[in-house]
């Protein structure tokens, strides 16, 4: 029971401390909020672009060019292999005669083709993968390029791979920024608590001398750090939501040009829990490090 009262006292004390210096408290919480908002907004943006790229209707295509003198039997065998592959959603065969006819239909090069003695174009398969996942595209490429009768393979939509690489890189950047800002939240709390300790130094020293345990002394500061983290997270959620709404206005104008829908989602339940819990834990850690450092100076020696 006393332990519960002890925690209630510590939490009350921490809240009083924040309101005792409201301007200072608001600035600290604002720093927390900004430190969390930046990676959070970036994360929401990257996550949404990632999902959006996965649902793009412009599926990448793979062209498999066959050897010039390939036999019809071999073409049928390759067609059978493509048919069986679960990674291929559809394929079509374009014979060299059809390809030539298509080219001849284009005015600008028909004259050039008519001067050639024979058809320079190969037979080809055009394959549509079942997914835009770069790994699947790469797998189809590797599987088909060494098939007997295949001259070369070309992936038409390398931009998808590039986009995925950019998204992965952005993910790494988000992680790095998050780690740096988490460290900054811990540092901010550490310093804030250090200043709090300095103002209560006499009380802490006296309490130690009359038998206060380290956990008794530490407790109000831990709550102070955690409450600051919690209030900071609320500010971050508010700011991130505002940023998302503002970005969506801009995206909507852009999307109208492509006759499509593009908007960022606000934070879901899992993300909200994480955004609230993480700053609380980081605030707690910062406060713990700061008080522990100070209490070490007061050890019996």
């Amino acid at each position: 029971m006393n332990l519960i009262f002890g925690h209630l006292d510590a939490a009350t004390f921490a809240i009083r401390r924040i309101f005792k210096q409201p301007v200072h408290g608001v600035f600290n919480i604002a720093v927390f909020s900004l430190a969390i908002t930046l990676p959070l907004t970036f994360y929401v943006f990257i996550e949404h672009i990632s999902k959006y790229s996965g649902s793009l209707t412009a599926s990448p295509q793979i062209s498999i060019f066959l050897e010039k003198n390939i036999q019809q039997k071999r073409i049928a065998q390759i067609a059978k292999l493509l048919e069986k592959s679960p990674q291929i959603s559809k394929y079509s065969f374009i014979s060299k005669t059809e390809a030539l006819a298509e080219l001849e239909a284009q005015d600008d090069i028909s004259e050039l083709l008519s001067e050639m003695e024979s058809n320079p174009l190969p037979d080809a398969f055009v394959v549509t993968p079942s997914s835009t996942d770069p790994q699947i595209i790469s797998h189809i490429y590797e599987e088909t390029k060494n098939l007997p009768g295949v001259e070369s393979v070309r992936i038409d939509s390398e931009w998808i791979s590039k986009l995925n690489i950019i998204l992965k890189l952005s993910g790494i950047i988000v992680s790095i920024i998050s780690i740096l800002l988490a460290a900054s939240v811990v540092t901010i709390t550490f310093n804030t608590i250090r200043l709090q300790i300095l103002t209560q130094q006499e009380e802490i020293e006296f309490s130690k001398l009359i038998g206060a345990t380290n956990s008794f002394i530490r407790r109000p500061f831990l709550y102070f750090g955690a409450i600051q983290g919690f209030l900071g997270s609320q500010g971050a959620i508010l700011l991130t939501t505002i940023f998302i709404l503002l970005l969506n206005k801009g995206f909507q104008k852009l999307a109208n040009f492509y006759d499509s829908e593009l908007s960022l989602n606000t934070l879901d339940a899992d993300q909200l829990i994480l955004v609230v819990l993480l700053p609380v834990v980081l605030g707690w850690i910062g406060a713990w490090l700061s008080t522990t450092r100070h209490l070490k100076k007061l050890e019996y020696q």
């Binding site: 006499e202 009380e203 006296f206 130690k208 001398l209 009359i210 038998g211 206060a212 345990t213 050890e299 019996y300």
Partner: peptide, 23 residues
């Protein structure tokens, strides 16, 4: 004395300091 037992030992003492150490 180990650091865990120290606070409990200190509670056996009443301390009146020269500088009073009032809050």
């Amino acid at each position: 004395i180990n650091s865990d037992a120290l606070p409990f030992l200190r509670r056996n003492f009443g301390l009146i300091f020269q500088d009073l150490k009032l809050l």
